[in-house]
Each structure stands twice: as structure tokens, then as C-alpha cells.
Design a protein around this nucleic acid. Structure first.
Length: 665
DNA sequence: CTTAGGG
DNA sequence: CCCTAAG
């Protein structure tokens, strides 16, 4: 259980994959199967990565907490150690709401290490260029001890946060320390095409890695973020006493199986999470926690700050959806994550291009000559995680807080992404067009190119092959932008708003039928194709649908047989139906089917029942109100007659059947 | 699988 | 037509 202590610097969370003891072959197989089954979706990997980080972080800074233990911050009691610490209390420094303690996570691009140039572009101080993707979050949510000393919830940041004044009004002034979640491996997955057709490094027609030159990569403005407000009611229970020593005494009321029971803590059983269930737990929690997500207001200049919010109602349904995999598309209306995009409809992800020419800070693409063939180099260094707003009760635990953060991240990213290309503000939808034809590659227009990451839960994202010259820029990804008006735009300093509708990112529930969350290493070891999503067209005229991404990818697959084509009943069919119903009545649709439509396989008895329903309705309304092919009035009269007759029969039956049933009623 | 109803 | 609870 004890992990080696990790050295997390502010400027780089460079330990995405902690070497872990090999798991059992069975679990590995489980994981592999998951991957092969497309259960492990794109940013499950992220979840795992970050989950690992999250967990690992729990044991950092001399505070060893058993993984994933819920820590009731109210109950944290430090054991007698040299550096004794008083019980901790959470202090929320969210100025927005007094009764809603919140943890505000603000992504920053290596906020500590980077400087901002005149245009607000972050300029890394040292070469992080080889760190293709990183996400930085900072937290100004503090834990306060009895001495009113703020202690960062962020274990790593204790040093920075301790001894700050505890005055809430000063909280905002607290330096926003950052932790860096290295998403390197996620990007590697991307590169392998296992996640989404996004390459962190795209080198077109060249293996030249010169573009990873020593010039500091360009980063983008710092304030782009979204804020998920997440209810954390689930976590309101459970406590643990931890020591600041090297071991932990954990007294936990775990709510693993009792999330819905948190309102009844008394019935909670002392259980304990497996030590390694971080990612999976997150996924499980997602189901119940994010069911009702809705956009939340943001503040400030959107176009400037690119704030996005996501929040989850405090009172969410806690019904566990255990068998989402079993009912892949039965519940697809559920589990929509809502995320209010920026003005441009793009959630606040930022990509950083590493220009070859440092002077041209906005240049993200380079046109170079390679072997006589002009090529364009593209490098997307990293993506930003937008600002998160997390709302949770004071009784929430540290662990729950961390998990909530993790969930927010995974929620945001889970759906997977696909790449869109914007050039000079216009979306290039023709994947077959060459860069040359599109005008991409001209140095003077390089700035006009941006890449969007768009929620990707509705289409296949073929892995990117290294031979594919188009790669990100004109990948052969099925082009669903029309269905994904909201996109994560990666562009130098500019977002391209494609919609101001809320972006709904859907988390899906991965049923945890295996014991452990796969470790990133295990995942990365999986070379199998992860993504084979079927394309499901969504009508463009349904804006809601456009923004909706179903939770479960599988639901979008072949099984999700598209709605049957509409086949209006012909007059002959209606007549046959009427005749059959006259004979069998309105409760024997199977017989009707067998009698009148036995050879018409596309007419099910449900269809016949439905048709009868509409026939009755049609017969009752005025002819002017009727639509479609007119049904002879004679038939409609028969419909009414038959309906009246059989309704009468039905009521008679009901009157006869329960003669002694509750006469009082 | 069928029914019955709501969507 | 779809989706589903019930039976």
C-alpha cells in the first residue's frame, strides 16, 4: 500500500505512470478485454493517468493516505508526530457562494514556471517541449487547520499554502499553485490512434524532429477554463484519521457501496475501497454524479477568459446504473454531461503550438521543404484543462474532493475527441482536400490554422497512421463537425466559437466488473484498436441533439440500429387492420398480426397497435386536421365503431373481474 | 414475448 | 416509431 514518495514539482508533474506492482494476469486480461471491447475509451486513459496521480498524490508530502480512502476533512486527526497538525477544516474561498464551499481548480499552463509575454502567451522557462501534453491545475481551495492556517488540499502544495492568512476575502489572493498532470501518455495514446485522431506531434512528410527545437514552446493565455460545479453529496460520509507520519491509521466509513446512502450515514457499513480502484471508482461515480449536469453561468469576458462551466445539480439521482453495458442504448438519454462552452462554443482547451520560429509566436504550423515535397509541420504541445468549479459540501472528504476533480476531468475528456480543422476561421470539412489546396502551409497564413478537438462519441476515430500524410490536418476522420458544433479549439490565442450552445459532454459509466482500474501503463501497453465507433447521424435541425453525446459509446454502434424507416400504412393495410381488430378486438395484437399481417414482417404487433391508436385518433379529429394520405371515412367509421365496441367489452370485463375487489373504492 | 401506454 | 414497464 505504501508507495514511494514522489517528488512533485510545481512546474511539472512528471510522474504520470508510477511503476506499479504487476497485476494479476486476470486483471490484465480484463483490461485488455475492455480495451478491445472499446470499453476503455479515449480519456479513460486520462482518467487513469490522472487517477493515478491523484492517488499518488495522496501519499505525498509525508501524508500517506490509503488510496482512495475517503477522508472526512472534519475528522482528520493527526497523530502525534513531531510536526503535529491540528485537525483540518476546509475553508472555501469561493467568493461566489458562502454556503457552497467549492474548490476552484484553475488550469494554468505551468503557471509557476511560465512567463507571459505581451500577448498573454505563456512562455515556458525551460524546455518542456518534450512534454507533449500537460494539464495544469491550480487550486486555491484551502484546508484550514485549527490555527487558521491554510493548508492546501493539494498535498504537494502544503508548503506554499501553509501559514497563509485565513481570511476568506484574501483567498482569492492566494497564489494559485499548480499541479501538473502530465498527460504525456494520453497523448501517446493519441499518437497511436488509440484515443482519438489527435496527434500531439504531427510531422507531415518528415521525420525531422527539428521542430522540437530549443525554442520554448508557446503557450496560450492562462485563464481559459471551465468550471464544473459538482455535487459531492455522495461523499459526505466516511472519515479517516490520518497521520502525517509515514503510515496511516485509517478509520474509514467508506461509501463505496453506499453513495446513495450518504443521506443515511447510519446505515453505512464500514467497507473499504480497494486500493487501486481510482479510475474505476471515478467512472462508477460519474454515472450518478453527473447525471444531471447543466450549464452554469460564467463570469468575466468570455471571449477573453474562455470560461466554461460544468456543474452538477446538488440533488442528483443516486440510482446506480449498474448495467449500463448491458443496456447499451436503452438509457442513452441519461448521462449527459453539460458543459457550457465559451462564446465560440469551444470548451476551454488550449493547444500549444510549438513554432519553429520563435519570433512568430503564433505560428503553429510550419511549411518546410522536405525531399522536395513541401511539408507542413504541426505540433500541438499540450492541451489545457479548463477551469473547474467544484461544489461540494463541507463534510466532503479530501478524497472525495480529489475524486470529484478527477471526475470533472474525465467527464470533460471522456467522450473522446476528434479533430476538426479550421483555417482562416472556416472549418475545413473536406478531408480529402490537401493542405496545399486549402492554403495551409503558406507561412503567412499559418496563424490562420487551428485545430479543434471536438467531442467524439459519435463517430469512428480511425487511428492515425504515421504514413498518413494528412494526419491531423486533414485526417480521414469521418467529418462530423456538423453534429459537433461545439468544439475544443486549439489555436494560438484565439478560439473559434462555433456555437454558443452548451456543450454536453457525456461521461459514460464503465461498469466495474474487474477489480482494478487499469493502470496507464497497462493501457498504454494495449496496442489494440480502441475505437471503432459507428457513426450515427444526428439531424442537424435538432440543436440539442447536436450538443448531446451519448454516454455510452456502444450505444452508438451497430446495435443502435437507426430508427426504422417510416412506412405509412396504405389504405389496404388499414382496411386489413380494421377488419382484424373488428374480429379480435383491441387487446389481441398478436392475433391481429398473425391474421392480417403475418407475412408483413415490418409490421409488428406493436406497430399495429400504434396504428390503431392513431387511427382512432384520426377518426376523432376533424378531417381538416388529418394529415397524410386520407383514410376513407368508411374505414374511420369502422375504426370508431370497433374501438367503441371493444372498449365497452373491456370495461365489461373489468367490471366483471373484480367484483369483490375493494368495494370501498 | 405481449400488452399497454407514454413519448 | 420508439421505449418500457408489466405481466
Amino acid at each position: 500500500m505504501l508507495q514511494k514518495k514522489l517528488d512533485y514539482g510545481f512546474n511539472g508533474y512528471q510522474v504520470p505512470f508510477i511503476p506499479k506492482a504487476p497485476r494479476s494476469a486476470r486483471k490484465r486480461d480484463c483490461i485488455r478485454k475492455k480495451v478491445e471491447d472499446n470499453q476503455m475509451r479515449a480519456f479513460d486513459l486520462l482518467a487513469t493517468v490522472a487517477g493515478n496521480l491523484l492517488l499518488e498524490r495522496e501519499i505525498s508530502q509525508n501524508t500517506i493516505v490509503e488510496k482512495d480512502q475517503a477522508v472526512n476533512v472534519e475528522d482528520v486527526v493527526m497523530e502525534e508526530q513531531h510536526d503535529e497538525v491540528n485537525p483540518l477544516k476546509v475553508e472555501h474561498c469561493d467568493q461566489a457562494s458562502a454556503e457552497t464551499p467549492s474548490l476552484k481548480l484553475e488550469p494554468g499552463l505551468q503557471a509557476q514556471a511560465l512567463q507571459y509575454d505581451a500577448e498573454g502567451v505563456v512562455v515556458p522557462q525551460h524546455d518542456d517541449a518534450l512534454n507533449p501534453a500537460s494539464v495544469i491545475m491550480s487550486s486555491d481551495c484551502l484546508v484550514k487547520d485549527d490555527a487558521n492556517h491554510k493548508i492546501a488540499l493539494n498535498d504537494d502544495d502544503n508548503d506554499k499554502f501553509c501559514n497563509h492568512s485565513a481570511k476568506p476575502e484574501q483567498c482569492s489572493a492566494v497564489p494559485k499553485e499548480s499541479c501538473l498532470l502530465n498527460l504525456h501518455e494520453c497523448v501517446e495514446q493519441l499518437d497511436k490512434g488509440e484515443l482519438s485522431p489527435v496527434n500531439s506531434n504531427v510531422i507531415k512528410g518528415s521525420e525531422d524532429v527539428n521542430f522540437l527545437d530549443t525554442k520554448p514552446p508557446q503557450a496560450i493565455g492562462s485563464d481559459h477554463s471551465f468550471k464544473p460545479i459538482l455535487s459531492a453529496d455522495h461523499y459526505a460520509c466516511g472519515s479517516v484519521s490520518l497521520s502525517r507520519g509515514n503510515n496511516v491509521k485509517v478509520v474509514t466509513r467508506d461509501d463505496d457501496e453506499n453513495f446513495s446512502g450518504c443521506t443515511h450515514p447510519s446505515i453505512m457499513k464500514p467497507t473499504r475501497w480497494p486500493a487501486h480502484i481510482g479510475g474505476r471508482k471515478i467512472r462508477r461515480l460519474l454515472a450518478s454524479k453527473y447525471r444531471r449536469a447543466a450549464p452554469k453561468m460564467n463570469n468575466g469576458d468570455l471571449s477573453d477568459t474562455e470560461l466554461c462551466y460544468i456543474y452538477c445539480g446538488r440533488k442528483t439521482g443516486y440510482k446506480r446504473q449498474r448495467s449500463r453495458r448491458i443496456y447499451p442504448f436503452k438509457k442513452r438519454k441519461s448521462f449527459y454531461y453539460s458543459l457550457l462552452p465559451n462564446n465560440d462554443g469551444n470548451i476551454g482547451y488550449k493547444g500549444i503550438y510549438s513554432p519553429k520560429k520563435a519570433i512568430d509566436s503564433s505560428a503553429s504550423f510550419d511549411a518546410v521543404e522536405h525531399g522536395g515535397v513541401p511539408s507542413v509541420k504541426v505540433r500541438i504541445k499540450s492541451f489545457r484543462v479548463p477551469e473547474l468549479f467544484i461544489e461540494m459540501p463541507e463534510t466532503g472528504t479530501i478524497g472525495s474532493l480529489k475524486r470529484t476533480v478527477m471526475e470533472a476531468l474525465t467527464t470533460l475528456l471522456r467522450g473522446g475527441l476528434h479533430v476538426g480543422v479550421l483555417f482562416q476561421g472556416k472549418k475545413i470539412r473536406d478531408d480529402n482536400r490537401t493542405l496545399l489546396q486549402s492554403g495551409i502551409g503558406r507561412n503567412d497564413l499559418v496563424e490562420s490554422l487551428s485545430v479543434t478537438l471536438e467531442p467524439n462519441a459519435v463517430h469512428t476515430s480511425p487511428p492515425i497512421s504515421s504514413e498518413d500524410n494528412s494526419l491531423v490536418l486533414s485526417s480521414d476522420v469521418p467529418e462530423p463537425p456538423s453534429r459537433c458544433p461545439d468544439a475544443i479549439t486549439i489555436h494560438q490565442g484565439t478560439y473559434h466559437h462555433s456555437s454558443d450552445r452548451p456543450l454536453n459532454i457525456v461521461g459514460h459509466l464503465i461498469e466495474s466488473d474487474h477489480d482494478s482500474a487499469p493502470s496507464p501503463a497497462e493501457i498504454s501497453a494495449e496496442k489494440g484498436r480502441v475505437d471503432s465507433r459507428a457513426l450515427v447521424a444526428l439531424p442537424e435541425e435538432t440543436p440539442q441533439a447536436l450538443a448531446m453525446i451519448p454516454a455510452h459509446q456502444k450505444s452508438k454502434r451497430a446495435e443502435m440500429a437507426q430508427r426504422r424507416i417510416r412506412r405509412p400504412f396504405s389504405v389496404a393495410e388499414v382496411e386489413a387492420l380494421v377488419q382484424a381488430v373488428e374480429k379480435f378486438g383491441t387487446g389481441r395484437w398478436r392475433d391481429v398480426k398473425l391474421r392480417a399481417f403475418d407475412n408483413v414482417k415490418h409490421r409488428t404487433y406493436v406497430d399495429l397497435k400504434d396504428k390503431w391508436k392513431t387511427l382512432v385518433h384520426t377518426a376523432r379529429i376533424s378531417p381538416q386536421q388529418r394529415r397524410g394520405k386520407p383514410v376513407p371515412q368508411e374505414l374511420l367509421d369502422r375504426v370508431l365503431a370497433a374501438h367503441a365496441y371493444w372498449s365497452q367489452q373491456q370495461t365489461k370485463q373489468q367490471l366483471k373481474q373484480p367484483p369483490n375487489a375493494c368495494p370501498l373504492l
